[in-house]
C-alpha cells in the first residue's frame, strides 16, 4: 500500500479476496512474532536455572537446591511483564493469543503443582504417594508436559518450528533423562529444553522479521 490514492482505490473481486486472506493471516503472524521474545526469555531463564541448580547440587551434594526452581516462575513473570511494557503502544489480542497464553499458564500451574506435591509427599513419605510423585520421575514428567505445551502452542499458531521444537524438547528431554540418570545430571534435561526454547524463539523471530 504505497500511497493514499492507491490505498483508497476500489479493487477487483480477486484483489479484495487476496487482501482479506493476507490481512487475516497477518494477525496470526504478528502474534507469533511477538511470542518469540518470550520464548527467548523463558529459554534463557530455564538454561540459567538448570545450570545453577546443577552446580549447587553437585558442589554441596544436596538436592534441596531444586527448591530454587520455585523462584523461576516469579522472576520470569516479572521479566515478562517488563518485556511486555514495550508493547503498550501497539496492542492486539485475539483467540490465538488467548489460547497460547492459556496453554503456558496451565503448564505453569501443572508444573508448580507437580513439583510442590513431590516436595511435600517426599517429606511425608507414604509409599503409594511416593510412587505417584517420585522425585526421581519429576524431571521426566516436567519435560514431557513442557514439550506438550510447546507443541500445543505450535498447533494454535500454525507454526511448524514451534511444533517440532515441542517434540524435540519432550522426547529429547526424556531420552536425556534415561541416558544421564537420576542425579544432578538430570538438570541437563532443562538446559536442553531451555536451549531448544531459545533457538525456537530466535528462529521464529527470523521467520517473521
Amino acid at each position: 500500500m504505497e500511497n493514499t490514492n492507491e490505498q483508497n482505490r476500489e479493487m477487483t473481486a480477486q484483489e479484495s479476496l487476496s487482501l482479506i486472506t493476507e490481512t487475516l493471516n497477518s494477525s496470526r503472524r504478528e502474534i507469533t512474532r511477538r511470542s518469540s521474545k518470550y520464548y527467548i526469555l523463558w529459554g534463557a531463564l530455564l538454561t540459567l536455572f538448570s545450570l545453577l541448580v546443577y552446580l549447587l547440587w553437585k558442589l554441596t551434594e544436596k538436592e534441596a537446591w531444586c527448591c530454587l526452581w520455585f523462584a523461576m516462575p516469579v522472576i520470569g513473570y516479572l521479566l515478562a511483564r517488563l518485556l511486555g511494557r514495550k508493547d503498550t503502544a501497539v496492542h492486539v489480542q485475539n483467540d490465538v493469543s488467548r489460547i497460547t497464553h492459556g496453554i503456558w499458564t496451565s503448564f505453569g500451574i501443572f508444573a508448580c503443582a507437580v513439583a510442590a506435591f513431590t516436595l511435600i509427599f517426599s517429606m511425608l513419605g507414604t509409599n503409594i504417594i511416593r510412587t505417584l510423585f517420585s522425585v526421581a520421575g519429576l524431571s521426566a514428567e516436567l519435560v514431557l508436559i513442557f514439550g506438550l505445551a510447546e507443541c500445543a502452542c505450535g498447533v494454535a499458531l500454525k507454526n511448524w518450528t514451534i511444533k517440532v521444537a515441542g517434540f524435540i524438547t519432550g522426547i529429547g528431554g526424556l531420552a536425556i533423562y534415561y541416558i544421564l540418570g537420576l542425579g544432578y545430571e538430570q538438570m541437563f534435561i532443562f538446559t536442553f529444553a531451555g536451549l531448544v526454547l531459545m533457538a525456537t524463539g530466535l528462529l521464529v523471530k527470523r521467520q517473521y522479521r
Binding site: M1, E6, Q7, N8, R9, E10, M11, E15, S16, L19, I20, T23, L24, S26, S27, R28, H91, V92, Q93, N94
Partner: peptide
C-alpha cells in the same frame, strides 16, 4: 470497497481489538 477500508475491516475481523 476501498483498499484501506477493506484492510482495516479484515484486520479487525481477526482480532478482538
Amino acid at each position: 470497497h476501498s483498499e484501506l477500508r477493506l484492510a482495516i475491516m479484515s484486520l479487525l475481523a481477526g482480532v478482538d481489538e
